[in-house]
């Protein structure tokens, strides 16, 4: 990532360089948004709806170029599908850190957003995955329907298409709330 981030610095000094940067943005963003490979992991019932059902032929992530990867090194997108317990949160953070930049996160379902039904009277559930890792798109529901999660993925694609060269390492500046 280091080399590509320095490209605008050199290009913008020469006449007409901005045009090249813009075109580079367009090409890179288009290719990123069109091949969002998501990490294959699910922690609760949302995984049935969000990963299995939506990944199967009736709804089919593959229409948007999304496909599962079982290794965090090859994945661009993490769909946090389901309840994250305090014990699991550390593992999710490790998985997130192992993913290569640029990386995106969708928080799927009430549990991943704010603890869901486990908000009260619970000793073990993390109240929102955004206390641990940065989240790009929130998809509410318990669980969300496959249409909702597809809508969330399209929103994420729109977001990716707006970003500029050099924006990607923003996630490194994320400081989670002290737990």
């Amino acid at each position: 990532m280091g080399v590509i981030e320095k490209v605008p610095l050199y290009l913008e000094k020469i006449p007409g360089g901005g045009l090249i940067t813009t075109s580079l943005d367009a090409v890179l963003n288009w290719s990123r948004a069109s091949s969002l490979w998501y990490l294959l992991f699910g922690t609760a019932c949302c995984a049935i709806e969000g990963l299995m059902c939506t990944g199967a032929s009736r709804y089919d992530y593959d229409r948007f170029g999304m496909f599962y990867r079982a290794s965090p090194r090859q994945a661009d997108l993490m769909i946090v599908a389901g309840t994250i317990t305090n014990k699991m949160a550390k593992r999710v953070k490790i998985l997130y850190e192992q993913m290569s930049e640029p990386k995106y996160v969708i928080a799927m379902g009430g549990c991943a957003i704010r603890g869901g039904p486990f908000y009260y009277d619970c000793y073990s559930v993390l109240r929102g995955i955004d206390l641990v890792i940065p989240v790009d798109v929130y998809v509410p529901g318990c669980p969300p329907r496959p249409e909702s999660i597809l809508e969330g993925c399209l929103k994420l694609q729109k977001k990716i298409k707006k970003q500029k060269v050099g924006d990607w390492s923003k996630t490194e500046k994320f400081i989670p709330e002290p737990k």
Partner: peptide, 23 residues
Amino acid sequence: LLIEEWDEGYPMRKDWEGKDFIR
């Protein structure tokens, strides 16, 4: 079952209150 560094007592007891516990 609990996290490795658990030190807040026994959470299934009725009178238990933890750090992040919201009744």
